[in-house]
Write a protein that binds this DNA or RNA. Structure first.
Lengths: 243, 243
DNA sequence: CGAACCATTGATTCGCGTCAAACCCGGTGG
DNA sequence: CCACCGGGTTTGACGCGAATCAATGGTTCG
C-alpha cells in the first residue's frame, strides 16, 4: 500500500515530472513510521553525521545556523513534502542544524536505501537531486532579497513564496494557510530584527494585502501582493518536464 | 588522453572522494573544446533552456539576477573547476543569468551525455550532485553573512572562502591569488554598495590582513583573517568520504 | 498566580545607501 | 605626443532604513 504520508512529496514531484507507481512504491517501502517532534526541538544538529534522511509530513521545520552571541540565521523553511537533510546523503556531515518550528511529524529514509535508489533508479535519483536544486533556487532568491530588497518587499516576497509552496503541497486551500512562525523567527529568516518585522507586518496588513491572526494567514489581494513583492515564481520551477 | 583542462574539476572532486580513471575518461570524452568569453559577456541568460552544461576552466564567472531598476545581486562566484549551470540539467529553465567576470574559458558537456552519466554511472552522478550541494552550502553561508554579519566580517569571510576554494582548484599558491572583481561587483555579491565596499576594504587592509593591488590579493595574516571573519570551512566539506 | 513567551510601541543610535565630485589610469584617436 | 574618454577607485556630506534598548500588555501554561 502506498504510504499516504508521502502524498505531499508526491504532489511536489508530480508537478515537476511524472512519477511512476513503482517509484512511489519504492519510496513508500523505504520510509520509516512517522516520528513526532515538539516545537523547538532539533531534528539534526550541525556536525551530525545522519544515517537517515528526514522528510517532513506535517508541521514546519527550519534550517538554521547559530552564532556565538546567540543570534541565529534561518536558511530555509520546510513543510510537508520537503526533505530537510537530504544533502547529508552526500555531504555526510551537517553544516547547519534543523529544528522544528511547530510540533511536527516526519518519516525517515535510511541512507542505505537512498543510495540504492541512486544505483538502481536513475530517474528517481534525479528527482531527489531535483528537490535539492529547488531548495538552492529558493536560497538564491533569499540572497537577492536580503541583498537588494527593503523589508516590506522581502516580507511580501516571503509570503508569496510560502503560499505557493504550500499550495503545491496541497496545504493552502482558499488562499488561507497556517504558518506557525513567531515574528522573531521571521526576522531570523529574513535577516531582520523582530521589532522591525512587527512594524513592517503592520504596514503590509494595513495595505490590505493579507491578514495574519494567530497562525493563520489569509491572502486578501493576491495580485497586488505579488506586485508589491515583485514575485515571479519562475525560480520555483512549477512546470512538468521530463527530468 | 585525459583532458588537462579538467584538472581543477578533478582536484575539486578528489578532495571529496576517489575518482576512478574511467570516470575521468568519461568526463573528458564528454567535454567540448574550450570556448572563450570576454569579461562582461553572458554565458547563459535567465529564461534560457541550455542543452549543454558549462564548466569553467580559466577565469571567473558569476551567477546573478538583475532587477528592473538596474541593480543586480550576485548569487555565486565560479572559478576553474566549477560548473556554472549544472542545475539546468534538471531544472531545465535558467532562473538566473551567468556572466563572465573576467575573460574566461569554458568547456561544455551535452546534457544528453550528462543524463547518460546519471543512467549508467551512479557514482559519478552522485559527484555531480555533490557539486551542486557544495554550491548550496556556500549559498547558505552567504545568507548567514548577509543576514547577520557586518560589512567587514562579510568581506573578510568572502576573502577566506574564495582563498580556500582557489587553493582547492590549485590556483592560490603562496597565499596569493588573482581575483578580477571590481568593487562594484563585490558589492553586488555581498549586498552592499560599492562605496561601502571601498571604505570597508580600506579598513581591512589597514588592519594588515591582506593586500589587494590590481587583481592580486595576498593574504598577510591568515590566522587573524579567519578569526576576523569567524571563518570555519566545515561548510566547504573538504574531506574525502565515500560518496 | 506567577513564569515565560510573544506582540507591540517609543526613543535613540548607527551602519550603510545615496549623491556628487575628484582622481587615477590605460586606451584611443587626432 | 597629447587631449580626451570611460571605467574604476576614492572621498566627503547627508539621509534613511533598520538595529538596539527598554518598557508595556496579552496569552498560555504549569
Amino acid at each position: 500500500m502506498i504510504n499516504a504520508l508521502l502524498e505531499p512529496l508526491f504532489r511536489k514531484l508530480e508537478i515537476r515530472d511524472i512519477l511512476s507507481s513503482e517509484e512511489r512504491q519504492i519510496l513508500s517501502d523505504a520510509a520509516s513510521s512517522p516520528v513526532s517532534f515538539r516545537a523547538g526541538a532539533d531534528l539534526v544538529a550541525e556536525g551530525d553525521r545522519p544515517e537517515r534522511s528526514t522528510l517532513v509530513v506535517a508541521g514546519f521545520t527550519t534550517r538554521y545556523r547559530q552564532l556565538a552571541d546567540g543570534r541565529r540565521q534561518i536558511t530555509g523553511i520546510h513543510m510537508a513534502g520537503d526533505f530537510v537533510d537530504l544533502p547529508s546523503l552526500l555531504l555526510k556531515v551537517m553544516d547547519h542544524s534543523v529544528g522544528a518550528l511547530s510540533d511536527c511529524s516526519v518519516v525517515t529514509f535510511p541512507h542505505a536505501a537512498l543510495r540504492e535508489v541512486t544505483e538502481r533508479q536513475p530517474h528517481l535519483a534525479r528527482l531527489l537531486w531535483l528537490t535539492t536544486l529547488l531548495d538552492a533556487g529558493i536560497l538564491r532568491e533569499w540572497v537577492l532579497g536580503m541583498g537588494r530588497l527593503t523589508a516590506p518587499q522581502q516580507l511580501a516576497h516571503f509570503i508569496c513564496e510560502t503560499y505557493v509552496r504550500l499550495q503545491v503541497a496541497g496545504l493552502a486551500p482558499d488562499r488561507t494557510f497556517s504558518l506557525p512562525l513567531t515574528q522573531t523567527a521571521l526576522g531570523d529568516a529574513l535577516g531582520l530584527s523582530s521589532v522591525h518585522i512587527n512594524r513592517t507586518l503592520q504596514d503590509l496588513r494595513s495595505e490590505g494585502l493579507f491578514t495574519w491572526e494567530g497562525n493563520r494567514i489569509r491572502i486578501i489581494d493576491w495580485e497586488r501582493l505579488q506586485r508589491r513583492a515583485n514575485f515571479d515564481p519562475l525560480y520555483l520551477h512549477l512546470h512538468a518536464e521530463p527530468r
